[in-house]
Design a protein around this nucleic acid. Structure first.
Length: 401
DNA sequence: AACGTTTGCAACCGCGACTCG
DNA sequence: ACGAGTCGCGGTTGCAAACGT
């Protein structure tokens, strides 16, 4: 308990005493939950009106569910409303009887940290055979099924990268893909990593990558918009491992991104002239995010063996390199944060159980460490994710335990 | 058991919106 | 129209309990 002497006035701060609560409750009983500042002016409590109101709203008001964990139904509602309204905690709380805005805010923050912790697990020691142990945070809370990641292989190392992060690229010309000029190699390298197998990888909902402010600036989207306007700019497909999919719900959520991203609108439209390969991924040309198809009847161009034998990170690096030779080809359209190949060389190395794979030796101070990569995400990047398979919660637990 | 670290939550702070004289 | 006071919201902080070593 802190007291502040202000002239003749003494102001109390910090935790409330039971006697103070009693006085406050009695005040509200007599005068109603208003005129908070008069509590102090009447000499009832040495607390600011603000503090009194907060105490009443968050702790003393009848019918509060204090000390009661959020039910799965409440969590679902919070997730959905947060996706729809953003951090409008008071609005969200108004739909949850017995919950305050502070409750919702704290619940959300805790949930975010828990998910981030799971993704920020330090790299496993070389040769470790217990990569699954690093999913402990996820298993601890079966409600968290929203975990997405790709494992990326490259000559410089192997890393687990939150899905969505490895893919914000766009391509000027899909002919470049169909007739690879020798260096345009695509493979979305989703590989099994120990007991956390490919099938365990869940697809990350793209909504927050699109809506988030961390990576894309408005000017980035403006650039993308110009790309869109050029009919020559088609889509690029690349193969990915089976069972990665984006559901209709995900698709809708992508469409729901803020209109302020005006230049990226219509990015989810389908592109004709492609002949359904197995489980393909379609780049969203306007913003460079992938549309991942579980059902390939509608889209997809099968990759050549050569393409499949090369990996995605290599492709990204190579793309960047080629843009140095042909700046018209890629650079103008790339979001600015992607134009530094150093970023790609320092993708987060969160897991690696292959002793032959060494983490690159990164020395410079402004390096892109795992933490810095992940902290670069919008806080809500990991929210509202769609489980990979329909019965994900049970399935997830079963696979990991 | 002792100690250090992590986690969750209660409370505070700053700011913008609103009201009223 | 303007300024002071009040309210409400969202972000941040501090601390106690839980957890790990």
């Amino acid at each position: 308990m802190k007291t502040i002497q202000n002239g003749d006035e003494v102001l109390r701060k910090g935790p409330w005493m039971p006697e103070e609560d009693e006085i406050l409750v009695e005040y509200v009983r007599q005068f109603g939950a208003r005129d908070w500042s008069s509590i102090r002016s009447k000499g009832l409590l040495p607390r600011t009106g603000k503090s009194c109101r907060l105490r009443w709203v968050n702790k003393l008001k009848p019918d509060l569910k204090s000390g009661c964990k959020f039910s799965p139904e409440e969590e679902k509602l919070v997730v959905e409303m947060q996706a729809k309204l953003g951090n409008k905690w008071a609005k969200i709380a108004s739909c949850l009887p017995g919950r305050t805005d502070n409750d919702v805010k704290n619940f959300w923050s805790t949930r975010q940290k828990r998910i981030l912790r799971a993704l920020q697990r330090p790299k496993m020691p070389s040769g470790s055979t217990d990569a699954a142990a690093d999913t402990s945070d996820l298993r601890k809370d079966p409600s968290i099924t929203d975990y997405g990641a790709f494992q990326v292989h490259s000559p410089s190392g192997t890393g687990l990268v939150p899905s969505g992060f490895v893919t914000p690229f766009m391509f000027e010309d899909d002919n470049a893909f169909r007739e690879p000029p020798g260096h345009l190699r695509l493979r979305h390298s989703v590989q099994p990593f120990n007991s956390l197998e490919v099938d365990d990888v869940l697809s990350l909902k793209l909504q927050d990558m699109v809506a988030g402010d961390s990576h894309f600036t408005d000017s980035d989207f403006s650039q993308c918009g110009r790309v869109l306007d050029d009919p020559r700019h088609g889509s690029v497909m690349y193969q990915h491992s089976p069972r990665m999919m984006i559901t209709p719900r995900n698709a809708r959520s992508v469409k729901r991104r803020p209109r302020s991203r005006r230049d990226a609108r219509s990015c989810f439209e389908h592109h004709s002239g492609t002949d359904g390969g197995q489980d393909s991924v379609q780049m969203l040309p306007e913003i460079g995010l992938p549309l991942i198809q579980g059902n390939s009847r509608d889209f997809g161009v099968p990759l050549s063996t050569e393409q499949q034998n090369n990996n995605y990170l290599d492709f990204l690096l190579q793309t960047e390199a080629s843009s140095m030779h042909s700046s018209q080809m890629f650079s103008p359209e790339l979001p600015s944060f992607l134009t530094n190949s150093q970023q790609w060389e320092k993708l987060p190395m969160l897991y690696s159980n292959d002793p032959s794979i060494q983490e690159p030796d990164v020395k410079d101070s402004d390096s892109c460490s795992p933490d810095s990569v992940i902290s670069g995400f919008a806080a809500d990047v990991f929210d509202s994710l769609e489980p990979l398979c329909p019965a994900a919660p049970e399935w997830w637990v079963a696979r990991l335990s």
